[in-house]
């Protein structure tokens, strides 16, 4: 058995978290909260090292880019939310700027990969898969557009039933992928416990 304190701690943490499968317990809770705390602490250190320190030390003091104080001041307005109520409205400025920025970003860049995917997928037809792809796509689009008409039109009821099966197959693939991902995660932990901690394999 590996008696390295870090390995021991990791092993105890792994077993405590896995014990949740049987029943929620104090050991699981302790490690859950510890993990959340660690992530929060790590993020703060990362932000300090990667952003605040280089921005203040290199760009502001080193290169004299003092205009950076303006966005910094706007960012600090977020904290007015926890101050007296008569100042809390000031938090709307950084919120509105960041939301506006995000929306602008999305409008500029989000349609591009989707349109490219759509265009390229229907660019050439030579293989039987291309026709299957087109057929399934049409069926799914019709399924959702004519959802309400399915009650009255028999043809749509039939295609609707077929499409529902196709959608279920797709969902099954996604579910299967997710389950395999979960297995991989558990296998990684087994490997750690058996190889790195207990040295059995």
């Amino acid at each position: 058995m590996n008696m390295d304190p870090l390995i021991m701690l990791e092993a105890v943490g792994t077993i405590a978290v896995l014990s949740y499968v049987w029943k929620e317990n104090a050991a699981y809770r302790f490690f859950e909260f510890t993990a959340i705390g660690l992530v929060a602490a790590h993020s703060i250190v990362q932000t300090w090292n990667n952003y605040l320190k280089p921005t203040v030390r290199d760009r502001m003091i080193g290169d004299g880019e003092w205009y950076l104080l303006i966005p910094a001041a706007i960012g600090l307005l977020y904290y007015t939310r926890v101050m007296d109520k008569k100042f809390s409205w000031l938090a709307r400025y950084p919120i509105s700027i960041s939301i506006g920025y995000s929306i602008g970003y999305s409008l500029a860049y989000s349609p591009r990969p989707f349109l490219k995917e759509f265009r390229n997928n229907f660019a050439s037809f030579g293989h039987v898969n291309d026709y299957i792809f087109l057929l399934v796509w049409l069926l799914v689009v019709f399924y959702f557009i004519f959802t309400l008409m399915k009650k009255t039109k028999k043809t749509l009821r039939v295609t609707g039933a077929i499409t529902r099966c196709l959608i279920m197959i797709y969902m099954g693939v996604l579910f299967g992928t997710s389950i395999l991902g979960k297995f991989s995660r558990l296998l990684g932990r087994y490997q750690f416990l058996l190889r790195d901690w207990l040295r059995l394999i």
Binding site: E117, G176, T177, G181, K182
Partner: peptide, 17 residues
Amino acid sequence: VYMGGIGGNARYLRSGQ
């Protein structure tokens, strides 16, 4: 390289993305 499997991501291979 996707975790768990390729799943629904195969369409990106088809579209060349």
